[in-house]
Amino acid sequence: MMNIVVLAKLVPDLVEELTIDASGAALDLTFARWIINELFDDHAIEQGILLKERSGGTVTVIAPDLEGADDVLFTAAAKGADRLIKVRSDFSAANNHAVARAFSAIIKGFQPDLILTGVQAHNDLDGSAGPLLAESLGLPYVGYVSGVALADGKFMVKKEYPGGLIAEMEVTLPAVFGIQAAEQPPRYVAVSKVRQAMKTSSIEEMDASDLDLSGAPEIERMFQPEAAAHAEMLEGTPEEVSAKLVALFKELGVL
């Protein structure tokens, strides 16, 4: 029976146009839509549930109290998470160091065997939450994980390297893992199941200690990368463009 905790981070949705606020040193998040870090944290939840389905245990999903957190938590419940926790504090301006410290204080109380989180997020400016959390808890960390398994009393993880090489590592639990991809892509949860979860499960709210923001760099300025080095555009009809491309291929010596 494994006690699995998943830290689900929320990130501003990149589908929305990003703007920089008046200070010029931070994103303007007034209208941000906070969604689960789909690329990774969604996989972390899935991995937690898969592990529970396979080896038994409980899955606690814990998320910062941002708009959208309820959605994330109830969706996790609909997938099979047992306990939902929302941590209250002003997270919209927090950094990962602060999040890690605040969450470690709470997670410590759960005495988890396993803590899963997404390997990274697009707004990590001061490192990723997983390893920061691991160190705050004094636990080992392995990131870029794409599979976890309990075999013969040993806990094994698959760590991905570029090019598809995988290292199988043995880790003493409790430990924190940064999930790169769950063994299966996150499942679909029907809206009716989420609605059901809203009725049958509840979100526990916990207060974070004061946020300690130290450890992050100070940002002086944010900007959108100028497209100075823009490609030379080839114009024309498909036929014309094809002719230009072929000429180019010849010039570059590949034809």
Partner: peptide, 23 residues
């Protein structure tokens, strides 16, 4: 900021109390 470096840098930042610049 890779499978190797990312496993180490953040942990050291916490452990040593040193600031970390990511990406």
């Amino acid at each position: 900021n890779t499978s190797i470096g990312a496993d180490v840098a953040s942990v050291l930042s916490m452990r040593l109390g040193l600031p970390l610049v990511n990406s």
